[in-house]
Amino acid sequence: MTTETSQSGSGRFSAFVPVLLFAVLLIVFAITLIKIGSNRLDIREIKSPLIGKPVPAFDLPSLNQPGARVSNAGLSGRAYVVNVWGTWCPECRAEHETLLRIAKDGQVSLIGIDWSDDAQLAQRWLQQLGNPYEQVASDVEGQAAVDFGVYGAPETFLVSADGVVLHKHLGALSWEDWQKEFVPLMVAAAKPVAGSSL
């Protein structure tokens, strides 16, 4: 009988071992999740060295108007947004809806740079999904993308009326991102040059 009680006593203790083991595991999981959570925005936080500098010069053939060129020179004097995209990029499809909404909003003109892409595919893409861009440049060689320091599509740049890069957004752009990141900058930039076309 005495052995019985001692056994059940140790049994009572050992029955708690799984609980303790699991509690440790839970803590580690929680730490990991918090770590992941704090790492979420990752590359989006890397500032482009381009910000505050003049927009890189580009002069590229237009995607949908044969013979026409799209260049920074042709755009000077007004603020615009440069969106680097490609049909090969699934995130670009995800943000397309936002771009259409921005275009519909009409506050600023969107300039697309179609990056190392097939022109036919790109034209079909715009026909099917709708074309948010005022002008689209075809950057087959990827030269402009290199000048812009693009490391993955989509990337979106805000250029002020005096040709300075104000902001860069990495990855798919959501309407919230647009409202939070771009609109305040545009409003701020518009003030000193009141009466401009913005």
């Binding site: 059940s8 049994g11 009572r12 029955a15 708690f16 799984p18 609980v19 699991f22 509690a23 839970l26 999981f29 929680a30 999740l33």
Partner: peptide
Amino acid sequence: ILALLGFFILGSLLLYAWRAP
């Protein structure tokens, strides 16, 4: 899911620690 995991596993293990002996 971590909360679910904690609830079900901790709950059942505590129940186990209480009842199994």
